[in-house]
């Protein structure tokens, strides 16, 4: 067999694929350090000849990027924290606690996954307007404070915990909350890490619902601010690329740091079919 030839071919293909995949991201970083207007020259430069931080400082000083960054951090952390608490509690209950209708309710929840979330958005907007929550952090966060996907993930994992452990604690007279906090939670740690990074990334990147419910720029998250800024500053490639870097960098770094957990969650979540 022509194994050496095949080996070179496969690795060259992989390198080309990786280069094509990463090229837009490299270009984004590179352009974000170019002086304003540099990309309009011909031929378009690929690397900055005079690297500058001017785009970043303009974004923070004039475009309110600091505020948007703070909003994104607040919203994504808030959603992650609350949905983690709610989903882990519910997932544990579906896996290990006994109550009438357990399987039927869980099946109904899974069935609800076929409904795209956008169907709910219009009534949700009217409802939140009526509750006075339009253009608030609570309004952005409300619909994602619990998720069927998260409950499913925790349930699958919690089912593998031995029942004897919980029964033994009950016989020793431990209350349900104590069992949950002191025995179950530490054992669920891997799935909690997975779910944390999943939820944080999803809420950081979320666009349509924040765009609908955030009507004033004081509360814009980064994606909403960026989408509207591009419409205003169509010509300002360099500044917009700096904005993209600020938006993408936190989630990319988080992913690189916790990659293993993310991939595990992705695989666990896709096995439901």
């Amino acid at each position: 067999m022509n194994a050496p030839f095949a080996k070179i071919g496969i690795n060259v293909l992989l390198t080309v694929a990786a280069a094509l995949t990463l090229m837009p991201l490299f270009w984004m970083v590179s352009v974000s350090f170019m002086p304003s207007g540099a990309t309009l020259s011909f031929p378009p430069p690929f690397l900055p000849s005079h690297p500058t931080l001017a785009n970043y400082s303009r974004l923070f000083v004039y475009a309110g990027m600091g505020r948007y960054l703070l909003n994104s951090v607040l919203v994504a952390s808030g959603i992650t924290f609350f949905s983690l608490v709610f989903n882990v509690m519910a997932g544990y209950a579906f896996a290990k606690l006994r109550f009438a209708g357990r399987e039927r309710i869980f099946q109904a929840l899974l069935g609800a996954l076929v409904i795209p979330s956008q169907v709910a958005m219009i009534p949700l907007f009217i409802m939140l307007k009526w509750m006075g929550l339009v253009n608030t952090y609570a309004g952005v966060m409300a619909p994602t404070l619990a998720s069927v996907f998260g409950i499913f993930l925790v349930r699958q994992y919690a089912r593998t915990l031995p029942d004897e452990l919980l029964e033994a604690a009950r016989i020793d007279g431990a209350g349900e909350l104590r069992i949950f906090a002191q025995i179950v939670l530490p054992l669920l740690k891997p799935i909690i890490v997975t779910l944390t990074i999943f939820t944080f990334l999803a809420s950081w990147n979320d666009f349509m619902w924040p765009l609908i419910v955030l009507t004033g720029q004081d509360h814009y998250t980064l994606p909403v601010a960026l989408a509207l800024l591009t419409r205003e500053h169509v010509q300002d490639t360099e500044m917009m690329m700096a904005g993209s870097v600020i938006t993408v960098l936190p989630v990319l770094l988080l992913f690189l740091a916790l990659q293993r957990y993310y991939i595990q969650g992705l695989l666990a979540g896709s096995m439901k079919g």
Partner: peptide, 10 residues
């Protein structure tokens, strides 16, 4: 894992 809006801008 990148933010859809940000990479769409690219």
């Amino acid at each position: 894992v990148t933010t859809l809006v940000a990479v769409a801008v690219i």
